[in-house]
Design a protein around this nucleic acid. Structure first.
Length: 154
DNA sequence: GCCAACGTTGGC
DNA sequence: GCCAACGTTGGC
């Protein structure tokens, strides 16, 4: 089982949105970056754990956890001309983009702020803590996962 | 709203 | 294949 951090802008899709979906489950679509795509297509597996991160907002940070309930499969939003994620270069025969399904698991009582992540010796190696990081899907270690769960209860 | 950092595009 | 120009991301 692997551990991941998934970034989302709360104005687009927040942890509350996930919580309120039918079955509290949602396809994680719209990823249009090759490195992140490769993770979704090749490495993210069912039952993997996910930290839900809110970016580009007032208080950026980790807000809760989710679970992967379906491994990588083609992102059909890429071939939907009405979708904001439409990409004419992705076809059903040769899908360019992939998504996974995630299910809500828990919303933390507090936000683990980016500022706090950067100050925590166990967490400051996370990709999210690095300057200029833009990758929306990033792997994390079990130690990092455990630490986040631990400080979330504080 | 600013702007540094990054990824992608396309001319050559 | 290089790299300048451009568009986007995301913290601040």
């Amino acid at each position: 089982m692997a551990y991941w951090l998934f970034k989302s802008e709360p104005e687009t899709f927040s942890i509350d949105d996930l919580k309120n979906r039918p079955n509290q489950t949602e396809p994680w679509d719209g990823v249009r970056n090759y490195q992140a795509r490769n993770f979704l297509r090749d490495q993210v597996q069912i039952n993997d754990k996910v930290l839900f991160y809110h970016s580009n907002c007032k208080v950026p940070g980790i807000v809760g956890i989710a679970q992967v309930v379906k491994a990588g499969y083609p992102d059909s939003s890429a071939w939907d001309a009405k979708s904001p994620y439409f990409d004419a270069k992705s076809t059903k025969d040769k899908p360019r983009w992939y998504r996974v399904d995630v299910r809500f698991e828990k919303k933390f009582d507090r936000i683990i702020r980016l500022q706090e992540i950067k100050q925590n010796p166990v967490l400051q190696g996370m990709q999210i803590a690095k300057k200029g990081n833009r990758l929306s899907i990033t792997p994390l270690t079990k130690a990092e996962w455990n630490e986040v769960i631990k400080v979330a209860l504080r």
